[in-house]
Design a binder for these strands. Structure first.
Lengths: 115, 115
DNA sequence: GTCATCTATCGTATATCTACGATGAAGATG
DNA sequence: CATCTTCATCGTAGATATACGATAGATGAC
């Protein structure tokens, strides 16, 4: 029998809305926008982000089931998103719970909006 | 003597604001967001987009001067942006005038905002 | 026509990306 | 302890990206 997504304790609390004062222009902003964009620059990764947003909570394990890709490939995509700061992965026993980093998404929106 | 950016006739008129009714979710939207993001996924291309936005008009020729890259490399980046639909290039005599495709940028904002 | 200018394209070398199967590490279960 | 589950990492093959110099094509100036 398989337990599916039984997030008893939320690993990603609401997180207080905190203003991001960094500039949306300049070399650093350019690098940042490029990094975040590159991370979103693959359909599978866009889908992963949507999955995490849709459930609006940690997703512990069954991301692979929702994509037509091998487990190792999904793990690689998750790593790309994590390295870019867009998602977070918290170890919860035998599995890892992934969730969105809301402030990274807000930052991306700010940077794209600043164009 | 070198003529610099003497855009007598604007190749990129204001373009009427037209609502984009396409969905911001689903497989097609995912592909679209991935394509646009990928195009922005390099600092040089972010800078190019900013240059075009800053002048708010066609830029005819001197994009290369603003980047620490060879002319052929800049041309390649421009092609990536053009293939993604983010910019347009109009031949104007001996040079080519590049400008932003405003609706593509709006579409990107809508897609990112829809996350 | 000849020359200069601007840009795209070709060829090329190196690096990164993307995908997979196989293996390894950590925790749960018996 | 032995086993199962879950996920990361390794190794690898093929594709794509990135950068450059060299070259070609188109246009304007002479």
């Amino acid at each position: 029998m398989k337990m599916t997504t039984q997030a008893s304790e939320p690993c990603c609390p609401p997180a207080k809305e905190q203003a991001d004062l960094r500039p949306v222009e300049g070399d650093e902003a350019d690098e940042e926008l490029a990094t975040l964009s590159k991370a979103l620059g693959h359909p599978a990764r866009v889908k992963i982000v949507r999955i995490l947003l849709r459930k609006n909570a940690c997703v512990c394990g069954d991301i692979v089931d929702e994509l037509p890709l091998a487990q190792s490939t999904v793990s690689q995509h998750l790593k790309v998103l994590k390295d870019a700061g867009l998602i977070r992965g918290d170890v919860d026993g035998p599995r890892v719970c992934y969730c969105i980093e809301p402030h990274a998404l807000r930052r991306l929106r700010a940077l794209v909006g600043g164009l």
